[in-house]
Simulated scan of single mutants.
Amino acid sequence: MDFISLVNRYFQTLTAQEREIIGYLQQVQDYSGLTAQSLADACFVSRATISRLIKKLELDGFAELKFLLKNFRQESNTTLEKTSVFEEVVQSYHMYIDQIFEKLDLKNIVNLLLETDVLYLYGTGNEQKLEVETMRHVFTALGKRVVVFFDKGEYDYAKECFKENDLLVLFSYKGESPEGIAILKDSQLYQLKRLVFTQTSQNTMAQLADYRLYVPTESVQTPTRLTYEVSTTFYFIIDQLFFDYKQAIGGSYDTSR
Rank of each mutant, 00 (worst) to 15 (best):
G33L: 05
L130Q: 12
K152E: 15
G251A: 05
T198L: 04
L34P: 00
L113T: 01
R9T: 12
Q188W: 08
R52M: 09
F234S: 07
L142Q: 15
L104I: 09
V118D: 04
R47F: 05
V110I: 08
M95N: 04
R9S: 07
F139D: 01
D98P: 02
C161V: 01
T35R: 10
D254A: 04
E154M: 13
D166S: 08
G125V: 01
G143C: 04
T116K: 12
E179D: 07
T200I: 09
V90T: 01
A158S: 10
I50M: 07
D117Q: 11
Q128W: 03
K159L: 11
E160L: 14
R212Q: 15
V230F: 06
A36G: 14
G61A: 01
F62V: 03
T255P: 04
Q191C: 07
Y155A: 09
L25T: 02
V132F: 09
A42L: 10
N108C: 01
K103P: 05
D210A: 00
T134R: 09
I183W: 03
F67N: 11
Q207E: 14
T200E: 14
S5M: 11
L59C: 07
R47M: 10
Y173N: 13
T134M: 14
L34N: 09
G153W: 08
Y96K: 06
E115H: 13
V45Y: 02
A141Q: 14
L208E: 09
I109T: 13
R19K: 12
G123S: 08
L34K: 06
V146E: 11
T255M: 09
R225M: 08
M1Y: 14
L25P: 03
Q207T: 07
Q188G: 14
V90I: 13
V220A: 15
V230R: 04
V28K: 06
M205Q: 03
A206E: 05
Y253H: 08
L195A: 04
S84I: 11
S32A: 15
T78Y: 07
G23N: 14
E131M: 08
D254F: 06
K163N: 13
L65F: 09
L65C: 07
F149E: 10
Y214M: 05
Q202H: 09
I181W: 09
N203D: 13
Y120I: 08
P216I: 12
V85N: 14
L170G: 12
T217F: 09
I181T: 10
E179Y: 06
M1Q: 12
Q74D: 10
T217N: 04
K163A: 15
F3D: 00
A36D: 08
A16G: 03
S256N: 10
E115M: 04
F149Q: 15
E102W: 03
D210L: 01
Y235M: 11
Y235F: 04
S231Q: 01
E75F: 01
L168I: 11
E102G: 01
V196C: 00
Q199V: 14
S231M: 14
G153M: 14
E115S: 08
Y235C: 02
A63E: 12
Q128P: 07
L167R: 00
L184A: 03
Y214I: 12
V85Y: 04
Q99S: 14
F67G: 14
D105C: 10
T140C: 15
L14K: 00
F72L: 06
S231L: 11
L80R: 15
V146D: 12
R52D: 05
T15Y: 06
I54A: 00
G125H: 02
H137A: 12
R212L: 03
L192E: 02
M205Y: 02
Y173T: 11
Y245T: 11
E87S: 11
